[in-house]
């Protein structure tokens, strides 16, 4: 496996995500946690509460007298940066950091994601980490008949009667290091819209590990570097030289 890959000045990343799942925070009360989050993640974010609905049925002793009611339960907070390029989700058992376009590079992404994680940990206490994952969504515009020149695995028609492809979805699920790490590699096509003349090829890679013990910061960093290497192995393995040159 390569440890160095070509640097891409035009990396087609439209979203990069770090997600860390933990054992649940013992006390999860809206006012208390919201206050802590607002003081911990102090500047540059807008805060939005997220709720889940529970629909319940009230059964009465009489045959027809029943009543439905909806109960809203607080699920956590969603934080959005002023320029709307960064989203943080804080839930009882997970921390998510998402960076939208423009992608600032791995080191910057990792630094900000881990800074937020440290803020989360200050609120959560020393919860055990259950799962660490990163997700990188890449979007590459293409013109007709070009896909097989850009990607190692691309959609193709079968049979002899003339036809065109109007939809495509492929998912490979990989296992690394005897199951210690897993990955999902999705390829799909997104139709053109008003802003894009051409359709786009979506290359969506997420890599994760559930084999996680309580970690020190150094271990988390090493783990992320390992996960990143698997992610790069899939990305650079999925594209052909022609696309690589285009992205450099």
């Amino acid at each position: 496996m390569k440890s160095q890959y070509s640097f891409l000045t035009k990396a087609p990343i439209i979203e990069a995500v770090l997600e860390i799942k933990t054992t649940p925070i013992p006390v999860w009360e809206e006012n208390l946690i919201t206050g802590k989050i607002k003081s911990q993640f102090s500047t540059g974010y807008t805060f939005e509460s997220e709720n889940i609905f529970q629909h319940t049925m009230q059964f009465q002793p009489t045959l027809f007298a029943s009543e439905n009611k909806s109960v809203m339960e607080w699920n956590g907070l969603r934080l959005t940066s002023e320029d709307k390029t960064e989203i943080v989700k804080v839930n009882r058992d997970s921390y998510v950091y998402s960076r939208l376009q423009p992608y600032p590079g791995w080191e910057n992404f990792k630094e900000k994601a881990l800074a937020g994680w440290n803020d989360y940990r200050a609120i959560a206490g020393k919860q055990n980490i259950k799962r660490i994952g990163i997700r990188f969504i890449n979007k590459i515009e293409f013109v007709n008949d070009e896909l097989s020149e850009l990607f190692v695995s691309s959609p193709r028609t079968v049979g002899e009667i003339d036809k065109s492809i109007s939809g495509y979805f492929q998912q490979n699920v990989y296992s690394f290091n005897k199951g210690e790490y897993g990955a999902s590699h999705i390829q799909t096509i997104q139709a053109s819209d008003i802003n894009n003349q051409n359709p786009s090829f979506i290359l969506d890679i997420d890599v994760y590990t559930s084999e996680v013990l309580p970690l020190e910061e150094k271990d988390l960093n090493n783990n992320l570097e390992q996960i990143r290497m698997f992610k790069n192995d899939i990305f650079f393995g999925a594209i052909k030289e022609k696309l690589l040159e285009r992205l450099k």
């Binding site: 439209i14 979203e15 997600e19 939208l100 997700r135 969504i137 979007k139 786009s200």
Partner: peptide, 8 residues
Amino acid sequence: LAGFSREA
């Protein structure tokens, strides 16, 4: 994993 973009 979570994602927030239109593509996600």
